[in-house]
């Protein structure tokens, strides 16, 4: 048919070869679009596949015990099939709690300073370093913790409070984690504070409030959802952080009673025992249960903070 020419309504020649080309192009577009849809569905369903896979692997240990028992028991005897996650959960909570207590005030103050007080030059100089900090791999934070924080606690902090500490403690884990979540919190708070409408500040200043009073009574209150979202996101990040914490927090499976006690967070439990898990029955299932636990908590926290943030974004845009 190639070369056979007819006339269309508009009087222009239509070449069947060109029509064929056109068909091929459209077909190509269609096939590629289906392929892309497939990739999109596959990668999005990763969330569900991970959840289901971990749950499926946790079934043996769940059949052997109950959710309640697994979460509240402190007895960890893999050879007898006893898995109590309570100390690990508490280890995670201690480390995360310390990290947030240290990081949140520092980050709020920093963000307030660079957005409200400092010359814009300060922000332009500081933010690249914050970004660089966020790029540093967890294991490097771990090395830094071992080399710097551990001796600091052992020789300079702990002696003031307790008789003896090796330095490997939930405090060390908390400090290292706090530094790791600085960039996350600072960058979110920066965005939140920068989108505060100027009119709001002007209104307060016009009533005779000082800058600090305006910040305290108006800006912080307005920014509260953003601060909460940043905190929730930081918590979920801290929850799952493995290697850096593992390297510094002592990994002793007892419930910590002071910041100088060692702790054993959930991710560290998974990471430390992967080698043995195939040889002891139910052990692999118990570790997958730990992963499932992390997965569920972090999923929930992430969703909550994303919803708060996207609401805030819409409110600011409106």
């Amino acid at each position: 048919m190639i070369g056979y020419v007819i006339l269309s309504q508009s009087g222009q020649p239509i070449n069947y070869y060109i029509q064929l080309m056109q068909r091929i192009r459209l077909l190509k577009d269609k096939i590629i679009s289906k392929l892309m849809l497939l990739f999109t569905i596959l990668s999005v369903s990763l969330v569900f596949i991970i959840g289901i896979g971990l749950y499926y692997k946790s079934i043996p240990v769940l059949q052997n015990s109950t959710w309640g028992h697994l979460l509240t028991s402190s007895v960890w005897k893999p050879l007898k099939g006893l898995f109590g996650f309570y100390p690990y959960i508490m280890g995670t909570l201690w480390v995360t709690g310390i990290a947030i207590i240290i990081a949140l005030p520092l980050c709020v103050l920093t963000s307030l300073y660079i957005v409200e007080y400092a010359h814009s030059r300060v922000r332009r100089i500081l933010m690249p370093f914050v970004n660089l900090l966020s790029g540093i791999p967890p294991v490097i934070f771990g090395v830094w913790g071992v080399l710097f924080i551990i001796p600091l606690i052992q020789d300079h902090i702990a002696p003031h409070f307790v008789e003896f500490s090796t330095g490997y403690s939930v405090l060390a884990g908390g400090i290292v984690l706090a530094v790791m979540i600085f960039p996350l919190i600072v960058s979110i708070l920066n965005e939140v504070l920068r989108t505060m409408p100027q009119e709001l500040k002007d209104a307060s200043l016009a009533l005779g409030a000082t800058k600090w009073e305006t910040i305290k009574k108006v800006i912080l209150r307005k920014a509260l959802p953003g601060i909460i979202a940043a905190t929730v996101l930081a918590i979920s990040r801290a929850f799952g952080e493995t290697i850096a914490v593992l390297m510094v927090c002592g990994n002793n499976a007892v419930v910590p009673h002071s910041v100088f006690d060692a702790g054993y967070p959930l991710p560290a439990l998974i990471a430390n025992n992967y080698g043995d898990m195939m040889s002891i029955p139910l052990y692999d299932s118990a570790l997958m249960f730990a992963a499932l636990l992390l997965f569920i908590i972090i999923l929930l926290f992430n969703i909550i903070s994303r919803i708060i943030l996207s609401r805030l974004e819409r409110k600011m845009a409106a």
């Binding site: 969330v47 896979g53 799952g240 493995t242 990471a271 992390l294 972090i298 992430n302 994303r306």
Partner: peptide, 13 residues
């Protein structure tokens, strides 16, 4: 949300 899932979970999976 996937971005927020910790690497240890990806490792386990």
């Amino acid at each position: 949300v996937l971005f927020g899932i910790p690497s240890i979970v990806y490792g386990a999976f």
